[in-house]
Design a protein around this nucleic acid. Structure first.
Length: 284
DNA sequence: CATTACCTGCAA
DNA sequence: TTGCAGGTAATG
């Protein structure tokens, strides 16, 4: 789903639905490889009887806080999503895990491509997951200066850096392209080469792209939905992503698709130049 | 840094 | 039939 705005929406919708619920049992599992830790037996046993205390998000991980210090985490990767079923519904072929609550409701984990994963973590595991990820771009500590220092000493091209979860957490292919378009910066620029004005624009644009995604309920290209089964509408507001040959909303130039770090990348080659010549503003 | 793998569906 | 898809980990 799988980027920050989508996972955040799942967390919020799940929060409304299942905080306070008690887990009766794992009642269905047809893809054991989705459980990364602990063992399948331990996973089943430890979940039994747990109470859901809170729901959160870290990077693209969904965090379901349970009692006894456990945290049930999900990563939806490309095509995963979670729904809460009010009525008894038989899982279809794309449901790989069902957790039943004592009130009879069921949590379904759906995933066409079977890339999604879950972990049941103790406090140490949770801390390791946290520490494996970079700064949260919507938090207050993500300042222009913070971004500046992240970019300063890196030779990486900008877009792969934005997608690196150990540097900034939660940005994926959609929001990277949208943010770079908004900032008018080419995805192949070298991170350390950005001048102060460009860093400030990028900072603003990352937040803007993510906030827009959030306020539109996330982006649904194919599979994404929140825990009520609702799709997002942000795909109707893309400027460049998946809009090859459409006119750039800013200048009218045709949107192009290039490849950057093996990922499809959408740019306006007119607004986002590799060697900006009119960048007089800040810097040395 | 690039390639491959993990999976399945869908559009060209 | 081929290539592509919101992500990431493993391997040259």
């Amino acid at each position: 789903m799988p980027e920050l705005p989508e996972v955040e929406h799942v967390a919020r919708s799940l929060h409304k639905q299942i905080v306070g619920a008690h887990i009766a049992a794992v009642t269905y599992l047809d893809w054991e490889r989705m459980i990364e830790t602990p063992s399948v037996d331990q996973f089943r046993k430890l979940l039994q009887g747990r109470t859901i205390q809170n729901i959160g998000r870290r990077a693209k991980w969904l965090l379901i806080t349970l009692d006894e210090g456990w945290t049930l985490t999900f990563h939806l990767r490309m095509s995963g999503y979670i729904t809460i079923q009010d009525t008894i519904a038989p899982p279809d072929k794309y449901v790989h895990l069902v957790i039943e609550f004592t009130d009879g409701r069921q949590l379904f984990f759906h995933d066409i491509r079977k890339f999604g994963r879950t972990r049941l973590l103790d406090p140490v595991g949770l801390r390791e997951l946290d520490q494996a990820h970079g700064i949260e771009p919507l938090e207050d500590d993500f300042t222009v200066d913070a971004l500046s220092s992240l970019l300063r000493n890196r030779q990486a091209r900008l877009k792969p850096l934005l997608l690196d979860q150990t540097v900034i957490a939660g940005i994926g292919n959609i929001y990277a392209d949208e943010a770079l378009w908004h900032a008018q910066i080419h995805p192949l620029r070298t991170s350390s080469d950005l001048n102060d004005d460009e860093v400030a624009r990028l900072h603003n644009s990352i937040r803007k792209a993510l906030q827009t995604g959030l306020s539109n309920g996330g982006s649904t290209l194919r599979n994404y939905r929140n825990s009520y089964g609702e799709q997002g509408t942000n795909q109707d507001h893309f400027h460049v992503y998946a809009r090859i040959t459409h006119p750039c909303p800013r200048c009218g130039h045709s949107i192009e698709r290039i490849t950057v770090g093996q990922r499809g990348t959408h740019i306006c080659a007119h607004c986002q130049t590799l060697n900006p010549q009119n960048e007089r503003s800040a810097t040395t």
